[in-house]
Design a protein around this nucleic acid. Structure first.
Lengths: 125, 125
DNA sequence: CGGAATCCTGTAAGATACTG
DNA sequence: CAGTATCTTACAGGATTCCG
């Protein structure tokens, strides 16, 4: 993969790479995508329950931005009490394998990274 | 890929997935990795020049944390003026393909995402 | 040249309370 | 149930200065 093909040095707003990497720069987006990937469709509180430590506000914010990007679709049922279902769009699904491969790498190299970290911190003290 | 194999719901500190995703949560790490991937070895100011809009401080911080994780190696030459060379470790190199596949996805779907974004923002107003 | 040290600010994100 | 509305805070990251 050549340098030119990456185009990672453009301004953030117009650079696909930076733009999308920024999307994963937040704390919850990837996690929500992965959760949605496991169940086809999920309600707000179901997602909330699965990700124990996300606040209601951040789950809303995250879902809204994923929806804005066309990665997640939101379907409201006009009932009382209200019911809202979230699911990955095709675009969202097409992203999952790439995230998964990253997770897989993480799993495989986690102990190595942690070992390196503690070794590095030792030297510092 | 099953839910169980992902293990994304554990505590952040002990969860490989979250731990590594957090690493890419910062603004510059992936960018620095990609830059280092293109040149085999680079000096501090060379990296700085390639990534035009990173501050000296953040480049230092980023390189240090990448070094701590064992993704980047740092070699100091005892000369005056000082010379320091950075390069990816094998571990760092093994990560690159996964990032690249993400970038590739970003490139391919950027216009689609941007279109979705502006459409979403229209509705909001 | 390659940083370190300090100061400062914007914003992501948490806590809490309220609502159709 | 699925949010919205505020308020508050921590910390990432920028700007600047100094140093071996």
């Amino acid at each position: 993969m050549s340098s030119e093909s990456l185009k990672i040095f453009a301004e953030t707003e117009t650079c696909p790479a930076r733009n999308v990497l920024d999307r994963f720069g937040d704390k919850w987006s990837t996690l929500v995508i992965l959760v949605l990937n496991e169940e086809e469709k999920l309600r707000f509180n179901e997602i909330h329950k699965v990700i124990g430590d996300i606040s209601q506000k951040m789950l809303t914010v995250t879902l809204r931005s994923l929806e804005a990007d066309g990665l997640v679709s939101r379907k409201v049922y006009p009932e009382i009490p209200p019911r809202v279902e979230y699911k990955l769009t095709d675009l969202g699904k097409s992203l999952v394998p790439h995230i998964s491969s990253l997770i897989k790498w993480a799993d495989q190299n986690f102990s190595s990274i942690m070992a390196s970290r503690s070794k590095y911190n030792q030297k510092a003290n």
